[in-house]
Amino acid sequence: MVAKKKSPQKKTLNGFAIQFIPYTEIKNLSSSERIKKILDLVFHNSILIIQGRLRPEEELRLTEDTMAMIGHVKNFKGIEIAIISPHENRSPMEKIKHTLATKLSGADLGAITIVGPVSVVKEIKQDPKKIELFLNK
């Protein structure tokens, strides 16, 4: 008797896009508009790489709005988000410089924010120096 050869399980990766958003694109948007823009793109399976970072209250609002949308948008189960800033362990002098630069530009332009839907992004592992993105198969 010949053992039936097991066919390899087909695994497909959902289509997704990686989109870079320069800070200039969200600079003049209100908090609500920024969050709406992020979520609209995420709903369409885009992984966003955003120059800069949201304000703390915007990050929290993004979490709130994400929760509100789970169950309302088909197959949406949330987001993975990570922010990396090259100046995490700054000296006091560097902190002052950084605060001034942030105030002048209106944002922490040295930071990068990555946001993706959990249907595409399985996990984002983060430490102060790197971000590792694991995708769903």
């Binding site: 703390p56 990050e59 979490t63 990570a82 983060q126 430490d127």
Partner: peptide, 15 residues
């Protein structure tokens, strides 16, 4: 891993 963004967001908002 403590570098979960949610942890950082919570602390950032409290501050």
């Amino acid at each position: 891993n403590p570098y979960n963004q949610v942890n950082i967001t919570i602390v950032g908002n409290l501050v």
